[in-house]
């Protein structure tokens, strides 16, 4: 039963992933709609950052996580190298949790 459930999740997820590129090649979207699709990715990814940085389950995350992400965000805004940005975010959160 559990294996069937796992396969169902795998198949469903594959179809969700397939749907976008398939629609994009089959249907010619009007230019306005294409712009909207491009904008949607940035909206979605920004929302993903906000949700994963600020929340845990249906409540708030502990303050160490958003603090780390904020440090990473400031570094990225100041054009620090990607690796420094990401490692600084993790390090900040880790250190704050030690305190």
């Amino acid at each position: 039963m559990i294996v069937v459930a796992m396969l169902a999740l795998a198949a469903g997820t594959y179809l969700i992933r397939l749907a976008g590129p398939l629609l994009r090649t089959r249907i010619t979207f009007p230019p306005g709609a294409e712009k909207l699709l491009d904008a949607s990715a940035v909206v979605l990814l920004t929302a993903l950052v906000a949700v994963t940085a600020l929340t845990e389950g249906d409540g708030a995350a502990d303050a160490a996580r958003p603090a780390g992400v904020l440090v990473g965000g400031v570094l990225a805004w100041r054009k620090a190298p990607f690796m420094a940005t990401v490692l600084a975010a993790a390090a900040t959160t880790a250190v704050l949790r030690l305190l």
Binding site: V49, T52, V69, G73, A76, A94
Partner: peptide, 22 residues
């Protein structure tokens, strides 16, 4: 893994990559 701040790493990765667009 949250001890090592790994949960802050994922949003930081996405944020660092989309910031130029923002």
């Amino acid at each position: 893994p949250n001890t090592f701040g790994l949960d802050a790493m994922f949003p930081a990765v996405i944020l660092a990559l989309i910031l130029p667009s923002l």
